[in-house]
Amino acid sequence: MKKFLIKLKSKLNWVTVVLVVITFMVAFVVGCRTGAKLAHETIANNQKQDEEYKKAYDEELAKLTDVYETDRIIENIIEDAIAIDYVEFLNDKMKGRTVFTSGEIFSLETHMFKIMTPDSEIYTFSNSSTNTNIKVGDKIKVYGTVSNKKESDICIINALKIENL
C-alpha cells in the first residue's frame, strides 16, 4: 500500500503540474484575446474621433471660407458706392443704390442705429454689418444699400460695412 501511495502521489504531482500549465495557457490565451479586443476597440474609437475632428475642422474651414467670400462680395459691392445725396435720399431717388456717409452715432438700438453727419443730416441704418462693436458717440463711416422699406416715413439704409474713424 505504501508503494501505491507513493506512485499515486507522484502521479498527482504530475497532474497538478499539468493542470497548472493548462491554467496558465488558458489565462494567456484569454488575456491575449481580451488585449486584442481592447486594442481593436481603441483603434475604432480613435478612428471615430479622427473622423469627428476632421468633420469639425471641415465645418470651421467652410465657415471661414464663407466669411472670406462674404467679405470679398461686400468689398466688391462697396467699391461702387457713391456719397449719399441728402436731397435725393429724402425724395426716394436713391433706393437700391450703394452709398456711404460719415457721422456720429446718436441713437443705437438692437439692430438699428442713427447717425448725424457734420452737415446735420440724419440717416437711419439697419445693422447687418459684422461690426457690432459700436456705441453712441462713435464717429464712423458706413457703407450700405438704400432700402425700399420706410420707418416712420424715413428711408432705411442697410449697413454693409462700418468703419470706426
Rank of each mutant, 00 (worst) to 15 (best):
A62D: 12
V15I: 09
Y86S: 04
I77K: 13
F113Y: 15
V67R: 10
D138R: 01
E51Y: 10
G144Y: 00
I157E: 06
T124E: 04
N13I: 07
I122W: 00
E51F: 09
E69G: 00
I156N: 04
K150Q: 11
T101M: 12
R72D: 14
P118V: 09
I74K: 10
K93G: 05
E52A: 09
V26W: 11
V87D: 08
A39M: 09
A62V: 08
L61H: 06
K135C: 02
E88V: 00
Y123R: 03
E75C: 01
N91P: 01
N158P: 00
W14S: 02
T34M: 04
T130W: 02
I140C: 04
I156P: 05
I140G: 01
E109M: 12
A44E: 12
D138P: 02
A36H: 10
P118H: 05
T110N: 13
I82R: 09
K149C: 01
N46P: 00
K161Y: 07
K54Y: 08
D153C: 01
Y53H: 06
C32R: 14
A62K: 14
D85Q: 07
L108F: 07
I115N: 03
D85A: 06
V142D: 03
K55P: 00
T145C: 03
K139L: 07
M94P: 02
D92Q: 11
G96E: 07
L12M: 10
G103W: 07
K7H: 02
V142N: 02
L90Y: 01
S107E: 15
E52V: 07
E79N: 14
T23P: 00
A81P: 02
K95T: 13
T124Y: 01
V87A: 06
I43K: 12
A39Q: 13
I140V: 15
K2N: 11
S126A: 10
M116G: 01
V15N: 00
T117S: 13
T110K: 12
L5S: 12
G103V: 07
T110I: 09
E60Y: 11
N131F: 06
R33I: 14
E163R: 09
I156L: 13
A62H: 06
I122P: 00
K11Q: 07
G137C: 10
E69I: 15
V18S: 05
